[in-house]
């Protein structure tokens, strides 16, 4: 029975720690990948606490389900890391307040005028490949559809993954009414569909698939962290689907000034310089010449495709169903 006692004692010791700090607390709900020690969370916490005389506490978890479940009683002051696929639901909940930030500093490839959701970084959907393994890289989406069937790609499920949904919208944006036909052409090349990005990327790095649905920014990790320049994103002239990560201020926050200060900090050059390598994404408000070295090397799409949340909401069910039908055949 001893392990049980030790276990219980450990739990009791854990819960008593939180009481010590007297400073005002800014509670930030963020995705697990943000809060993780390998994500940007620890650096954000350090940098912001250096300027706010407060205690920034990240709480990891499923952002939107959680905040919707908690409703107005939520402890969150900031929600950090929302994607455009959920902003409509989030906005309709009425739980968020306008950010009040000046958006002129944004350097996004699209015009962003949202008064609730504030971007901090972005990327585009892209198929990433290893140039030592793929000889004939498709130069366009059309070329990808026409590529031989032994070119194996792995994608994420649009019903379970944000990037998977972005892919479906990407195909819809490029092919419109022909989307289902495009999926049918792509189907034999799709090795499999995974629940999330990590599973797909794992299959790709294990050599199981030739190309993986990921982001235009993925090669930056390999360049900067591993000095590996063989991983590339295939850039298509048809354009790439724009994916942005957003934060928002909770309307019921009890520390509104701190929350505002955080949002301001989010657009600051310090934060923006850090987030590139912190979250392996393009900074949302930083001119290209100030990007970290590895990022400047990245091939950038000429065209960013994007649906507003209303457009995306209207298209989603149909687009996912086309995907499902085509791949179920």
């Amino acid at each position: 029975m001893k392990p049980a006692l030790a276990f219980a004692a450990g739990l009791i010791a854990n819960t008593s720690l939180a009481l010590a700090d007297e400073k005002p607390v800014l509670t930030v709900y963020a995705g697990d990948y943000i809060v993780s020690e390998w994500g940007p969370g620890p650096r954000i916490e350090e940098m912001f606490e250096a300027q706010c005389d407060c205690d920034l506490q990240f709480k990891p978890g499923d952002l939107l389900p959680r905040i919707l479940l908690e409703g107005a009683q939520t402890n969150a002051d900031i929600v950090f890391g929302l994607n455009t696929d959920v902003t409509k639901k989030a906005r309709e909940s009425g739980l968020f307040a306008p950010h009040g930030q000046n958006l002129s500093a944004l350097t996004l490839p699209i015009d962003w005028q949202d008064e609730i959701f504030l971007p901090f970084n972005y990327g585009h959907t892209a198929f990433v490949y290893d140039e030592t393994r793929v000889e004939e890289v498709p130069e366009s989406f059309d070329a990808l559809l026409d590529a031989p069937d032994d070119l194996k790609i792995v994608i994420q499920d649009p019903r379970a993954s944000v990037s998977g949904l972005a892919l479906v919208l990407w195909v819809k944006a490029v092919y419109g009414d022909e989307a289902e036909a495009a999926w049918e052409k792509l189907a034999p090349k799709i090795l499999t569909v995974t629940k999330g990005w990590s599973e797909s990327y794992g299959l790709f790095t294990d050599g199981e698939a030739d190309m993986v649905l990921s982001y235009t920014t993925s090669p930056a990790y390999h360049i900067i962290a591993e000095e590996d320049r063989t991983k590339k994103a295939a850039i298509f002239p048809e354009g790439h689907y724009f994916m942005v990560e957003l934060s928002a201020k909770v309307a019921g926050t009890d520390v509104p000034e701190l929350a505002d200060q955080f949002l301001e900090f989010q657009l600051s050059e310090d934060f923006q310089t850090m987030i590139a390598t912190g979250n392996w994404s393009f900074p949302a408000a930083l001119p290209q010449e100030k990007w970290p070295e590895g990022f400047k090397e990245l091939a950038l799409p000429e065209k960013a495709l994007f649906y507003t949340e209303d457009e995306a909401a209207a298209l989603r069910a149909e687009a996912v169903e086309e995907w499902r039908r085509a791949l179920s055949r």
């Binding site: 854990n14 993780s36 994500g39 709480k59 499923d62 959680r66 990590s198 794992g202 990790y221």
Partner: peptide, 29 residues
Amino acid sequence: VIALFADPDRATLPLKIYQLMGAYRMEQA
């Protein structure tokens, strides 16, 4: 029990593995 009950300070090993994967560190994962 899914991420609704994640403990910010006391991650478990499987969670760390997923975090590593999410941060491109497939080898460490």
